[in-house]
């Protein structure tokens, strides 16, 4: 499979085979991601990080990923310090940056920014989040985490919990899990359930899925509990929010009856969707999940830069 020069804008641009291949490559990156091995897969290559919106975790893990495979990093994360503050368009900035680097990672506040940037750029553009739009590297690291914990995803029971309506990354993950043939459970208050177009997409694909309003309905059968944040802004008043947030909060009591092997994931940062006493249980995987962003991004950067992967196990 040849990924050289390819953009990574949306997870929907990738087939199941391509996703599995990226995850396989990511597995081979783990020793180097932990610093146990030193790789020099892309000597002299430069990554330009263009962060129009702050994002500590994504930024740091991309930077680490590039350095772990032997590349260098330039970029900005404070728009006030760039010519954007003077009115330069993203299109013009891209035309300039592509002359300075070999690959671009872009985080922008507008939906569709990465698709447009990829059209203007001759070097690969990796989307690190475009407003409320896509965040494909998050989806890939989520899939990586599930696949490495469960072995495979076909027929596994995966519950998505929390804000399923507004979280577009949850929709991307949903589409990808449908491709993998997982059985899905959607657990959310009625006001935050999956939008109709996502439901109709699942129906067209004959995906196995159920909708619940109560976590305890499925606690005994799920293999993965993927928890997302419920935002205060979505509710008319704070009491309504507190009621809903309380009902979807995970603590050690709510985990009674769960499978021993069940894992809990969360894209982080969490606020109080998951009580800290869950961190020490055998279920918690959210910190592992955050680490997995590094090998997954190492894999993507190596692939789009056309690295020779023969040295990997």
């Amino acid at each position: 499979m040849d990924f050289r020069g390819r953009d990574v804008v949306s997870i929907n641009d990738f087939t199941l085979e391509e996703i599995n291949y990226i995850l396989d490559v990511a597995e081979g990156m783990v020793p180097a991601a932990k610093g146990e091995e030193v790789l020099d897969l892309i000597p002299g290559k430069i990554l330009a990080m263009m962060f129009y919106e702050p994002s500590t975790r994504t930024m740091l893990s991309f930077e680490t990923a590039m350095k772990r495979i032997g590349g260098k990093v330039i970029g900005f994360s404070d728009v006030r310090a760039t010519s954007t503050a003077k009115g330069e368009t993203l299109a013009d900035t891209i035309k300039m940056v592509e002359a300075y680097a070999d690959v671009i990672v872009l985080r922008h506040d507008r939906e569709g920014a990465a698709r447009m940037a990829a059209e203007f750029s001759d070097i690969p553009v990796l989307n690190a989040g475009d407003g409320a739009g896509q965040h494909p590297t998050q989806t890939l690291l989520d899939l990586y985490t599930m696949r490495s914990e469960l072995g495979y995803l076909r027929k596994k029971s995966i519950a998505l919990v929390g804000d399923l309506k507004y979280g577009r990354t949850v929709h991307s993950l949903t589409y990808a899990l449908a491709k993998f043939g997982a059985n899905l459970h959607f657990i959310a208050p009625e006001a935050l359930q999956l939008p109709p177009e996502v439901v109709s997409h699942l129906e067209k694909r004959n995906t196995n899925f159920e909708v619940h309003e109560d976590l305890s309905d499925v606690m005994g059968e799920v293999d993965v509990l993927y928890v997302t944040r419920i935002q205060k802004e979505r509710f008319p008043d704070i009491e309504e929010y507190n009621k809903v947030a309380g009902a979807f909060r995970i603590d050690t009591d709510s985990l009674a009856g769960a499978k021993k092997s069940m894992i809990i994931m969360h894209p982080l940062p969490r606020v109080d969707e998951i009580a800290t006493d869950v961190d020490g249980t055998q279920h918690a995987r959210y910190f592992q999940q955050a680490f997995n962003g590094v090998p997954v991004r190492m894999a993507l950067l190596s692939l789009v830069l056309g690295a020779d992967l023969g040295v990997l196990k």
């Binding site: 368009t89 993203l90 299109a91 922008h108 507008r110 939906e111 569709g112 920014a113 698709r115 447009m116 059209e119 475009d130 407003g131 739009g133």
Partner: peptide, 27 residues
């Protein structure tokens, strides 16, 4: 992004004909 100052034309895929539904290629 097509509703910002960027030099980009709008582009939609027609995903349903009647009633017609468009899908923005960008967002």
């Amino acid at each position: 992004i097509t509703n910002s100052r960027e030099p980009v034309s709008t582009r939609f895929k027609v995903i349903r004909k009647e009633p017609m539904v468009l899908k923005c290629v960008y967002c």
